[in-house]
C-alpha cells in the first residue's frame, strides 16, 4: 500500500499499462508538454515520448475520431477530453461511431478505447466546465461507463478500462484529483461491472459513485450517530449496472436512497429506482428517494452553486425521510 493522490493513481495506471502494452497511447489537449490541467499526465511524455503522449489541436471531434480509427487499425488509444463537458463537441463520434462500430459491423472489430472525462463541480467553474454527464452514456448501448470515487479505484478501474476490448468512458471527478488515499501496490485491477459494498448496514441502502460517494460516507457517519445503520454501495461502474448487488442489498434493508451530483431528472438514480421498482417493489418499506442536482445548469455565484450542490447534509436528510 502507498498513500497517493487520485491524479497520481491515474498516472500510475497509465504508466503501467503503457509499459505493459506498446499499443496503448494517449492523446489530448495540453497533456504532453503541460502534463494535463490537473497534473494527471505529469512526466508521462518524458517516459514514453511525444509519439505516444500526444498534444492535439483543440479538436475534440478529431481526437475521438482519430482514436477510433487507430483502434480499428490495431492500437489501444486513450483520449483525454480535457473536461467532460466537451464531449458535447464530439458527440457524433461517441454516439454513432465509437458505440456502434462493434455491433453494427457484426463484430468484425471492437474499439478498445478509453475516453477520459474529467467531470463535476470544482472552483466555481460554472455551466460549461462543471457537469456530470454520465446518464447520457448509460443510455447508449455499446459503451461501458465507470466513475471511481477514490485513488485505489481510480487506478484499478483505469487499468481495467485500458485492457477492456470495449469502448469505456472514464469519468474522473475534478475535485478528486488532489485527494489522497491508499492504493495497493503492484498490478491492481478493479473489475468493470461490479459494485462495491463499502459499508455493511441493515437499515437502508445508500447507493452512489464518484465524488458524491465521499459525501455519502460522511452522511453515513452522521446517521450512525443517530442510530441509523446505512449500507453503502459504490457503483464504480455506471454501465453495465451491477443490478444484482443493489437488489440483494435492498432485499435486506428494505429501503433505498440514491445520491449523485448530476441533475436528478433522468439521472442514474432514475434508472436504478425504476429497476428496483420493477424487480423488488415488494421488498420495499418506503418510497425510493433520489438525491441529485436541481434541474438547472450549474450556476456560477457562490450561494447559487452552494444551493445546487449535493452535500452530506442533504443526503442524510433524504435517508432520514425514508426511515
Amino acid at each position: 500500500m502507498s498513500t497517493i493522490t487520485f491524479a497520481q493513481a491515474t498516472l500510475d495506471a497509465m504508466t503501467e499499462e503503457m509499459a505493459r502494452d506498446e499499443r496503448v497511447f494517449v492523446m489530448g489537449e495540453d497533456i504532453a508538454r503541460q502534463g494535463g490541467i490537473f497534473g494527471q499526465f505529469k512526466g508521462l511524455a518524458d517516459r514514453f515520448g511525444t509519439g505516444r503522449v500526444m498534444d492535439t489541436p483543440i479538436s475534440e471531434t478529431a481526437i475521438v475520431g482519430a482514436c477510433i480509427g487507430s483502434a480499428l487499425a490495431g492500437m489501444r488509444p486513450v483520449a483525454d477530453m480535457h473536461f467532460a463537458d466537451f464531449i458535447g463537441v464530439c458527440f457524433d463520434e461517441v454516439l454513432n461511431q465509437m458505440a456502434k462500430i462493434y455491433y453494427m459491423f457484426g463484430g468484425q472489430k471492437s474499439i478498445p478505447m478509453v475516453l477520459r472525462a474529467p467531470d463535476g463541480l470544482v472552483n466555481q467553474a460554472a455551466a460549461q466546465h462543471s457537469q456530470s454527464l454520465e446518464a447520457f452514456f448509460l443510455h447508449i448501448p455499446g459503451l461501458k461507463v465507470v466513475a471511481p470515487s477514490n485513488p485505489a479505484d481510480a487506478k484499478g478501474l483505469l487499468k481495467s478500462a485500458i485492457r477492456d476490448d470495449n469502448p469505456v468512458i472514464y469519468f474522473e471527478h475534478k475535485a478528486l484529483f488532489s485527494t489522497k488515499g491508499e492504493v495497493p501496490d503492484g498490478d491492481h485491477l478493479v473489475p468493470i461491472g461490479r459494485a462495491n459494498v463499502v459499508r455493511k448496514g441493515s437499515d437502508v441502502t445508500l447507493v452512489s459513485y464518484s465524488m458524491t460517494m465521499n459525501h455519502c460516507v460522511k452522511a453515513a457517519e452522521i446517521l450512525a450517530g443517530e442510530g441509523i445503520d446505512v449500507e453503502l454501495i459504490d457503483l464504480r461502474t455506471i454501465s453495465p449496472l451491477d443490478v444484482g448487488t443493489i437488489l440483494e442489498s435492498v432485499a435486506r434493508t428494505t429501503r433505498l436512497v440514491i445520491a449523485h451530483e448530476a441533475v436528478k431528472q433522468g439521472g442514474v438514480g432514475a434508472e436504478l429506482a425504476a429497476i428496483v421498482a420493477e424487480e423488488a417493489i415488494d421488498c420495499l418499506d418506503a418510497p425510493i428517494v433520489r438525491v441529485g442536482a436541481p434541474f438547472t445548469p450549474v450556476p456560477f455565484a457562490r450561494p447559487l452553486e452552494r444551493a445546487y450542490r449535493v452535500t452530506p447534509e442533504k443526503i442524510a436528510e433524504a435517508v432520514r425521510s425514508v426511515m
Binding site: 505516444r52 475521438v64 475520431g65 482519430a66 480509427g69 487499425a73 492500437m75
Partner: peptide, 14 residues
C-alpha cells in the same frame, strides 16, 4: 474523415 486520419496515425505509429 477523422476515423481515416486515426487509421493513418496507426500506420505511422506502427
Amino acid at each position: 474523415f477523422t476515423i481515416a486520419t486515426g487509421a493513418a496515425l496507426a500506420h505511422k505509429m506502427q
